[in-house]
C-alpha cells in the first residue's frame, strides 16, 4: 500500500510555520518543551547518522557533548568571547577531538568500537574532574548565559533541530550518504567496489561530532551550569539510544518521533522521579517487542512509505 505524500507535506509546512512563530503565541512552558525537543532531536539525528547510517554504534557521544559544553563555558567566562562564537568553537573542539581519536577508534569493530568510544568519554570525565582550570568537579557557572532570552535560545535550538534533520537528509542524497550505507551493510564488499571506507566513516564521524558539539553548547548555555560527570556521563548516550531505537534506527523520521515520545514521557513521569527510568525502560521494551524496527521503521515496512526518503529512483 502506497500512501500519498501530499498530506504529510502540508502537515510539515504547517508544523514548521507554527514552530517559527511560536514565541508570538505560545507560553513559556511550551517554548521550553519545544526547545528541549529540538536539542534532543539534533543530538539524536547525529547518533542515528553514526549508528543507523554508518553502522558505528557509539556509546561515547558524551565526549562531544562535554567538549561542546565546556568550550563556550571556558571561552565566555574566562576570556569574554561572545557566547555564539563560543558555541561554534565548541563544535570545532568536538570535531578536532573526533579527528584525533578516529584512527585508534576505527581500528575497532562492533562492540569494541562502542566500548572504545565510551572509555574515551570516561577518560575525559576523569581528566576534567581533576583539572583545576575547569574548577575540578565543582563545575563552571556560565554567567554570561544569563543574558540570553528564551526566544534567542528557542530560535537557536530550532535551527539546530531542523538543521540537523535537513543535514542528514541532504547527506543521504549525496555520494557520501550512499557509501556510508554501503559500508554499514557490508564493509568488505564496499572496499571491493572502490569505496574508501576509512574516509567515508571519518566524514560521518566528524559531521556527527561537530553538530553534537554545537548542540551541546546550546544545551549548556540554556542550563547555565556545567559539571564534568554530568557533561561526560553516559546518560546522554542512553537517552539518545532510547530516542532512536523506539523511533526507528536508520530512518530520518525515527529520531523525530522518538524525541517527541521521550519529551512527553519525561513530562508524564517527572512526578515519579524515583521510578521514571524504570518506566521509560518498560516503554522501550514494549515498543521493541511490538515494533522491532522502531515505530517509524515498522510503519515504513508495513505501509511502504517514507516521508523524508533518501532513495534514488
Amino acid at each position: 500500500m502506497r500512501l500519498s505524500r501530499q498530506p504529510f507535506t502540508i502537515g510539515l509546512i504547517v508544523l514548521l510555520g507554527a514552530a517559527a512563530t511560536m514565541p508570538l503565541w505560545a507560553s513559556r512552558y511550551w517554548m521550553l518543551l519545544c526547545l528541549t525537543f529540538c536539542l534532543y532531536l539534533s543530538l539524536a539525528q547525529m547518533w542515528n547518522l553514526l549508528a543507523g547510517y554508518c553502522g558505528m554504534i557509539s556509546l561515547g557521544q558524551q565526549s562531544f557533548i562535554g567538549l561542546g559544553g565546556y568550550t563556550p563555558a571556558v571561552l565566555s567566562v574566562y576570556y569574554g568571547l561572545p557566547l555564539w562564537m563560543g558555541v561554534l568553537c565548541g563544535g570545532v573542539t568536538a570535531l578536532v577531538f573526533a579527528l584525533l581519536t578516529a584512527v585508534p577508534l576505527f581500528r575497532m569493530r562492533g562492540v569494541y568500537f562502542a566500548v572504545g568510544t565510551w572509555l574515551t568519554a570516561e577518560v575525559l570525565a576523569v581528566a576534567f574532574s581533576n583539572w583545576s582550570f575547569v574548577r575540578y568537579g565543582m563545575g563552571i557557572v556560565i554567567t554570561p548565559a544569563y543574558q540570553l532570552s528564551l526566544t534567542e535560545m528557542y530560535y537557536a535550538g530550532l535551527v539546530m533541530g531542523i538543521g540537523s534533520t535537513a543535514l542528514v537528509f541532504l547527506i543521504l542524497r549525496t555520494d557520501l550518504g550512499l557509501t556510508l550505507m554501503a559500508v554499514r551493510d557490508d564493509e568488505a564488499a564496499a572496499q571491493t567496489v572502490g569505496v574508501d571506507v576509512f574516509r567515508s566513516k571519518l566524514y560521518g564521524f566528524l559531521i556527527a561530532a561537530f553538530v553534537t558539539g554545537l548542540t551541546a553548547g546550546l544545551i549548556y548555555l540554556h542550563q547555565v551550569f556545567i559539571q564534568p560527570y554530568k557533561a561526560f556521563g553516559i546518560d546522554w548516550t542512553v537517552r539518545l539510544l532510547f530516542i532512536v531505537i523506539i523511533g526507528g534506527i536508520g530512518t530520518i523520521e525515527g529520531p523525530i518521533v522518538g524525541a517527541v515520545i521521550y519529551i512527553v514521557l519525561r513530562q508524564v513521569f517527572s512526578e515519579y522521579l524515583d521510578v521514571s527510568l524504570l518506566l521509560m525502560g518498560a516503554v522501550a521494551i514494549a515498543v521493541m517487542t511490538v515494533a522491532p524496527k522502531g515505530i517509524v521503521g515498522s510503519l515504513q515496512e508495513r505501509f511502504g512509505f517514507e516521508i523524508l526518503s533518501s532513495r534514488r529512483t
Binding site: M181, D185, A189, G194, R312
Partner: peptide, 19 residues
C-alpha cells in the same frame, strides 16, 4: 555475492561507480 541488502538495485550499481 555480498550485495548491499538495504540499498536498491540502482543504488548498488551507483555504489559500484563510486570511483
Amino acid at each position: 555475492r555480498h550485495v548491499f541488502g538495504s540499498l536498491t538495485v540502482r543504488e548498488n550499481l551507483l555504489v559500484g561507480a563510486h570511483s
